[in-house]
């Protein structure tokens, strides 16, 4: 296993994702002799995990089962231990595309935070690219280093423990792209510019507040960045449900009710389970928005150095 390469079977030392059910999963570090408790019972790593195929169903001691998944940056984002507020896959995907990242890209990032974006960046620039990530919080920097080592990607990333606003990224004229997720990104724009390659590159700054965006845009303009563009992306998730609505009784004769204009009782209705269809209801499939959704994560400001 590695976050940048698929493997078929689970090995000692791997990080695997235990999938219990929808939205319910957690990461485990696979180790000989170790056990993991789940609500369906115990998983014994030596016998239940090691040597099995990723994607297998594993039966736990109480007879319940779970799936063991190969780690990906996206699954990691959903399961990682939070040390800070993190970026989620929706923002990460647009950042990756708008920064034009691909294998071989050199990227600078600050701050590292919990490493959610870092894993996605490393995945995309591997095997020939590199990530230079700067985190001013010493403990977080250490923890990130440890995780990268455990995940088999340490050769693709350099973690530096310093203040990016004061000391920059520790590299100059090497980066194809820079990403900033810090409270005062405008103070780091100059450093970002010098970190980017002489022939140019892309920059992105993530800020929750519009005032931060304004100051960042001004700083970008002062430093000669072009194509400045601010975006916001929102994810809407839908639950797939079969809904049945009752047909109101308008006093029509009962024998008529079955031949009402609706093709409600039509069993070929997209294979929806109409077996216990009661008279006088219409069934249909619907994508129902969740009751609550993430309304705002942050503004993403992109620009080009040319």
């Amino acid at each position: 296993m590695s976050f940048v390469e698929y493997g078929d079977t689970i090995k000692d030392g791997d990080t695997a994702i235990v999938f219990l059910g929808h939205e319910s999963m957690f990461p485990v570090k696979v180790q000989h002799g170790t056990v993991t408790q789940t609500k369906y019972g115990v998983i014994r790593h030596s016998t239940d995990l090691i040597g099995k195929k990723y994607g297998s169903k594993v039966t736990c001691s109480k007879g319940g089962w779970v799936f063991i998944l190969h780690p990906t940056p996206e699954l990691w984002t959903m399961n990682l231990p939070h040390r800070t507020q993190i970026l989620y896959s929706t923002d990460i995907s647009i950042i990756t595309m708008m920064l034009e990242l691909k294998p071989g890209s050199i990227v600078c990032e600050s701050g590292t935070g919990s490493g959610s974006l870092s894993h996605a960046l490393i995945r995309t620039v591997a095997p020939t690219g590199h990530l230079y990530t700067v985190e001013f919080h010493q403990q977080r920097a250490e923890k990130a280093r440890e995780e990268f080592r455990e995940h088999g990607v340490e050769h693709l990333v350099t973690v530096t423990n310093q203040d990016v606003c004061k000391n920059g990224f520790g590299v100059s004229n090497v980066a194809d792209a820079v990403f900033l997720d810090i409270p005062s990104p405008w103070e780091a724009i100059g450093h970002a510019k010098s970190a980017l390659k002489a022939e140019g590159g892309r920059i992105c700054s993530f800020s929750p507040c519009i005032e931060q965006v304004q100051r960042t845009c001004l700083a970008m303009e002062e430093h000669g960045f072009t194509e400045i563009n601010t975006l916001e992306i929102l994810l809407r998730v839908y639950n797939v449900r079969t809904i049945s609505l009752q047909i109101p009784d308008l006093g029509k004769a009962s024998e008529d009710s079955s031949s009402i204009g609706f093709d409600s009782s039509n069993p070929s209705n997209q294979g929806s389970p109409c077996t216990n269809l009661q008279q006088g209801t219409v069934q249909f499939k619907s994508g129902v928005p969740l009751r609550e959704m993430v309304g705002h994560t942050g503004y993403l400001t992109f620009a080009t150095k040319s």
């Binding site: 999938f19 799936f67 601010t230 916001e232 929102l234 839908y238 639950n239 797939v240 997209q270 503004y299």
Partner: peptide
């Protein structure tokens, strides 16, 4: 995709099915 979702659930062999959409809003700053 609603139908596809149902059929995949019937078939099995898939987990973590998610139907989603993104909204994109751009700003004048």
């Amino acid at each position: 995709l609603l139908e596809c979702y149902t059929k995949l659930r019937e078939r099995g062999g898939v987990i973590n099915l998610k139907l989603s959409e993104t909204w994109l809003r751009s700003y004048q700053v």
